[in-house]
Every structure is written in structure tokens, then in C-alpha cells.
Design a protein around this nucleic acid. Sequence first.
DNA 1: GTCTATGCAAATTCTTTGCATGTAT
DNA 2: ATACATGCAAAGAATTTGCATAGAC
Lengths: 140, 140
Amino acid sequence: MEETAALLKQKGLKVTPQRLAILNLLKNTKEHPTAETIYKKLSSDFPTMSLATVYKTLEVLKNMGLIQELNVGEGSFRYDANTKSHPHVVCISCGKVEDLDESLLKDVMEEVKKHTDYQLVEQKLYFYGYCPNCQHKITN
Amino acid sequence: MEETAALLKQKGLKVTPQRLAILNLLKNTKEHPTAETIYKKLSSDFPTMSLATVYKTLEVLKNMGLIQELNVGEGSFRYDANTKSHPHVVCISCGKVEDLDESLLKDVMEEVKKHTDYQLVEQKLYFYGYCPNCQHKITN
DNA sequence: GTCTATGCAAATTCTTTGCATGTAT
DNA sequence: ATACATGCAAAGAATTTGCATAGAC
């Protein structure tokens, strides 16, 4: 993943092992982890890394537009290397957070613009329900 | 507002001045206040009321389905006496949070169901942009 | 009178900050 | 060599909890 290093450099950021690890982790997961989760996952590779570094790094990456911060309604933030603002589905049984196809947005935005005189620039769409897995559990 | 007392009673809750005040405040505002805001607004009428009581009351009212909790992405929650899950617009200049017409939802949900195998039960839709007021400020 | 709600203070959780040291450039 | 990043510990904000007292029923 030399690509990740290039990304950081391009943004004028120093390339440190911690930054690489955090950004790569986010790029290679679909889990939308929290700062805490990231910290725990990396603590085997970086036993001395502090949670503060995770937060500082996430802040920097967010400001540089390399990641985005999600707020699913839990009281803590989740992070996503997909920076396009795309809709999410949250499983209300197991807590999993998944992406929804972004193609939804166009139609939705059209509709919304009819209903408001705000000049819209962004949106956050969260859908809640039972994932296929949890549907089975409940049925049984 | 004897109606509010009846609502509480009906849910098996004791009717206290604090609960009445909090629920009435939420019913009579379109501002989607935070716990802190509610606390401040009521502190003239209830100088001895504590913030913990506000939080406890909001928790109870939420669990009873009399209010809903919003998470606009600020790190603190807002509260709304309209318990139907309806979309919101947030002004990214002045921070105001307004309701959007709920009629939007039907079409949106139809569309979303085509894109996921989750069994959807709810959604939270937040749109961000500039309110008419702030649009003027920026233009000038 | 009983049982729940309140108010205070302390505790928790998530996140941010200050500062000395370490490290990428 | 310089400037920025890291790690630690302490501070901060939002929220929750424990417990004695007060108040609703």
C-alpha cells in the first residue's frame, strides 16, 4: 500500500507508521469503526500508540478530506474512508453499519429540494432495520 | 395544558412540575433543544432543578415514546416532541434545525427498499445547507 | 404510608489539549 | 536541523449513576 503513503504526502502530511496504519485500516474495512475500535485493532501492531494519537490522526485525515466522520446516533463517532456522503443502513439488532448505494441520492435530493427553501449542500441518511442475519435469528 | 398531565398519567408516570415543564416546553417549540438548553430555559421557573433531572426526564419520556432523540451530528442530542420520525434540515451557518415535510418519506423508503435486504423499520434523514436567512447574509 | 422522582455530587464515557520527546523530512 | 507527530497525563464536555430527601399518589 504505497499508495496510501502517496496520498498523505500529496496532502503535505508527514508519513508516519501510525497514520499509514489508521488510514489503511479504514480503507480495508467496511465496518465503520470508532476511534476506540481502531485503537484496539492496532494495539497489537503498535503497542505504544495512544488513543490520543488515533483521535488526532482521525482529525487530520478528516480535515484533509481523506476520511469522513459518521454519527449514527450512538454518542460516539464512526469513521469511513469513503468520503463521498453516501447513505447507511444500521442493524438495530447487532449494531452493524453498512453502506447503501449512492445512486439513491440523486432522486432523494430532487424530491427534498421541492420541500425546502434551504440551499442544500449535503445530507446524512441513516436507515435502521434488521440485517438479513438478524432477521433469521428473530424468525427462529 | 392539562392534556400534558393526562399524557403522563396515561403512561403510568407520576405527574411532577418538572416533567410537565419539560414536556410542555418540547411541545411548544420548534427549536429541537438540547438537554442543556432545556435546563437553561427552565431554570428561571425552576431554579433548583438539576441538569440530571432534565436528563432523567428526557430518558423516561423517550422510553415512553412521548418524545424522540435527534442526533444531528453535534456530539450532543436534541429532543423533539414530534415522535414521528420525520426528516430535518440543518443550517450549516446558524445551526438552526427545522422539520421537513414527512410526506417525503414514502417515496424515499420505496426507493431504498430496492437497494437493501435489510428489513427497514426506521430512518433518520438530515439535510444540511443554508437557511434563507443565512443565504442573504452570505450574498451581502 | 409507599413508592417513585428529584437534586446533589461523584463517576463514566468520549474526545481534546498541553507539553516534552521522538521522528520524518 | 527543523518542524511536525507522538505519547502521556490531565482537562473538558456530555451524560449517567448512587443515594438521601422530597413529593406524588
